[in-house]
Structure formats: C-alpha cells, structure tokens
C-alpha cells in the first residue's frame, strides 16, 4: 500500500520562455524609455568620466584616468566611508523600526490592513521638501520636540540636534522607512497562520518561532527592503543638505556639488559611475542571497 503513492498534483515547474512578437511589441515603449532615460544618460556620464575640464568648467574631450585617480584621495574616501556608515545605520534603524510595523500590519485582520497601509502612504502625498522642512521646525532648538521635552522637565536645556549627525539620521530613517516596511509587509502577509501554529505545536515559543519560521520566510522582503533603503540613502543629498547644515556631507552632496558650484562635470561623472558600480555589485551580492524557494 505504502509503495504506491498516487501523485495528486504535480510540483510546479518554474519555466520562463522568451516573449513572442506581440510581447516585444508590448515591451517596446518601456525599452525605448529605458534607452532614452537610463542607458543614454549613463553612457554620456561614462564618457564624461574619462574627460577633463578647462578653467571655465567646460568639458574637454581628452582621455584621462585622472578623475578616477582623484577619487582615491583620502578626502573623498572618507566621504565615501561616511556615506556607507550613515546608509548602513539608516538601514539597520529602518529594519529595527520597520520590521515590527510591517509584521503587525500583515497579521492585522484583513479588513484593517488597507487602512493601515493607507496611513503609511499618506506622507507621500506631501512634497518631500515640505516634509523635510517640517522636521527642521520640529527639531530646531525652539521647536516642538525640544519645547515639549523641556516643559516635561525631561531635558534641562533646549535640544541641540538640528544640523548634527543625529538630525541627518532622523531625516534619512524618516524618508526611507516606508521602503523597508512595504516589501517586508508583502512577504509577511503571505505567511499562512497555520505555519505559525505548526511551529508552536512543535514546541517553539514566540521567539523561536520568529527565528526559525517567520524571519526565514520574510527573508525576501528583508533583502528587498535593505536594498531599497541602503542604496538610495548612500546617494542622498537633500536631507543631509537641509538637516545637516552642510556639515554632514555625504557622497551625494559631493556629486551634486561637482555638477553645480564646482563646475567639474568629468569628476562628478567619475564619482557617479563609481557609485553606480558599487550599487550594481551590492545588488548582485544581496540578490543572490535573497532568493528563497517557496511552494
């Protein structure tokens, strides 16, 4: 009896086939858009990065490695390092704050989830700059946060965090938190309740269930969230500019400066290309580890 198991369903065969003619036709607008606005600008940037500038800041078409050599300057390496450090810190904080929120929303009754997700999306309806200025007025020495804490006698003197690294970090975490929450929510929402019950039934308490079932099953969401927060926060310049008061420069500020005041497009391009290369490498690195096979 035991040897003759009848297969009631066949395991899903995951195969992809290339798009047909109609498929290419439907893809055409996207491919054209990518070619014009992603491939072409990147190619121009790549070409610029090997050029030089004259005294007035115009691009001189003369091949040189000099721009890349300049990046190795300790000044820029330090800024690169600081960018990675802040981005890393932002990612960790977003993960620590975002994971419980995402999990809570995913496990909330299905009828309440749309409302909770909506609350998460509402800030996107307001301009990013406006929201950043709102934070400035909240965090400044005579701002709402400081005044409240003082009134409650929790701090002896006005809070001095604006234009300090802490303010930049708050701004970065605030900006990127939803990008951590949404992918984790998506993978947490798929976890069937019976899997959590099975884990408990097999003797795992809440923490071991988290470690052995919930975290492994939300791994794809965690990796996507880490990628969506870490990569753009390396290159962020607006938050550091406004909330760091120009004292907490990151690589984004340097690049922006090359194309602005410094008028050194070739060097800016070289920084941009280096940054892009780091981006692509880290994506590959994370992506290969983020794959989890699901039923």
């Amino acid at each position: 009896m035991a040897g003759t198991i009848v297969a009631t369903d066949t395991p899903a065969a995951g195969g992809r086939k290339p798009p047909g003619r109609a498929g290419w036709l439907l893809l055409a607008p996207l491919l054209a858009w990518l070619a014009c606005f992603v491939v072409a600008p990147t190619a121009i940037l790549f070409a610029y990065s090997f050029c030089q500038r004259d005294e007035l800041g115009f691009v001189v078409w003369e091949f040189s490695w000099e721009n890349y050599a300049r990046i190795a300057d300790p000044v820029y390496l330090k800024i690169f390092g600081r960018s990675l450090w802040y981005a890393g810190l932002t990612t960790v904080l977003c993960l620590l704050i975002g994971y419980p929120v995402a999990y809570y929303i995913a496990r909330a009754p299905a009828s309440r989830r749309p409302t909770l997700l909506m609350l998460l999306m509402i800030p996107f309806w307001i301009s990013f700059l406006l929201r950043t200025y709102a934070w400035i007025s909240l965090l400044k020495a005579d701002g709402l946060v400081s005044a409240t804490l003082e009134m409650l006698h929790l701090i002896p003197e006005p809070l001095e965090i604006l234009y300090k690294p802490a303010a930049v970090l708050i701004g970065l975490v605030y900006t990127y938190l939803p990008f951590m929450i949404l992918p984790i929510y998506t993978s947490a929402e798929k976890i069937e309740n019976s899997l959590i019950e099975a884990s408990m039934n097999l003797g795992a308490g809440p923490w071991r269930t988290l470690a052995h079932v919930i975290l492994p099953l939300t791994k794809p969401g965690i990796f996507a969230g880490v990628l969506l927060v870490f990569v753009p926060s390396i290159g962020m310049f607006a938050v550091n500019d406004l909330m760091g008061g120009g004292k907490v420069d990151m690589i984004g500020n340097v690049i922006q400066n090359q194309f602005g005041q410094a008028r050194d497009w070739p060097f800016g391009a070289a920084l941009g290309i280096t940054f892009l290369a780091l981006f692509v490498i880290s994506f590959w690195f994370l992506h290969d580890r983020g794959e989890v096979k699901r039923t």
């Binding site: 069937e192 019976s194 003797g203």
Partner: peptide, 28 residues
C-alpha cells in the same frame, strides 16, 4: 500555551514549512 503541551497536530493544510526540506521539516 500550545508550545508547552505534549500534543502534536497534523494540520488540514499540512502547514509544511516551505523554507525547509523534508528532513528539516520532520526534525523541527
């Protein structure tokens, strides 16, 4: 709580952990 009771259950949906192979599921 359920994780301190000496009972085990076969679930209607089977509730096999998708991230573990057969042996690891059984060993859980």
């Amino acid at each position: 709580p359920p994780y301190k009771r000496d009972v085990n259950q076969v679930f209607q949906s089977y509730a096999i952990f998708p991230h573990l192979n057969v042996a690891d599921n059984v060993a859980f």
